[in-house]
């Protein structure tokens, strides 16, 4: 059981990932664009951020840069979720790594189940108690 911030502009995907993560017993908070995300983070402290890249107003990388700037947010693990192509992923991977991304997933390659699995893995790695407990 973890608190997760899902940053995603596509309503259907929000519904899908929210359904799965809630099915698995996680608390899912939603932001539909980059600005929303940063706003939400002012009041909500998630244990994991699922961050889309292509979004209106502020894209995923800008959001990530902002998060990494703030010390209180810097520790929150981030999984980049995107539907950009592999080549773009390849191009952005370095940047992603430099920005301290915990994982980088192409949405269409993975079922929500797999995304959950990855998320749990990241949470464990970041020393999430609940996950460890569960394990």
């Amino acid at each position: 059981m973890a608190k997760i911030l899902l940053v995603e502009d596509d309503a259907i995907l929000v519904e899908m990932y929210q359904a799965k993560f809630e099915l698995e017993g996680h608390e899912v908070h939603i932001a539909t664009n980059g600005e929303d995300c940063l706003k939400a983070l002012e009041t909500f402290e998630p244990e994991l951020i699922l961050l889309d890249i292509l979004m209106p107003k502020l894209n995923g990388f800008h959001v990530l840069k902002e998060i990494k700037k703030q010390p209180e947010l810097r520790q929150i693990p981030v999984i980049l979720l995107t539907n950009l192509g592999q080549a773009e992923v390849d191009m952005n991977q370095e940047l992603a790594k430099a920005l301290g991304v915990n994982d980088y997933l192409i949405k269409s390659h993975h079922t929500p189940d797999e995304v959950v699995t990855k998320a749990v893995k990241v949470l464990k790695a970041s020393g999430h108690k609940a996950s460890q407990d569960e394990a």
């Binding site: 596509d10 259907i12 995907l13 899908m16 990932y17 359904a19 799965k20 099915l23 292509l54 539907n83 950009l84 192509g85 773009e88 192409i106 949405k107 269409s108 079922t111 929500p112 189940d113």
Partner: peptide
Amino acid sequence: VSHELRTPLTAIKGFLSM
């Protein structure tokens, strides 16, 4: 194209998998 095609496909894939 990649982004806009993948998004609905991702939704189909995700819901179906569930």
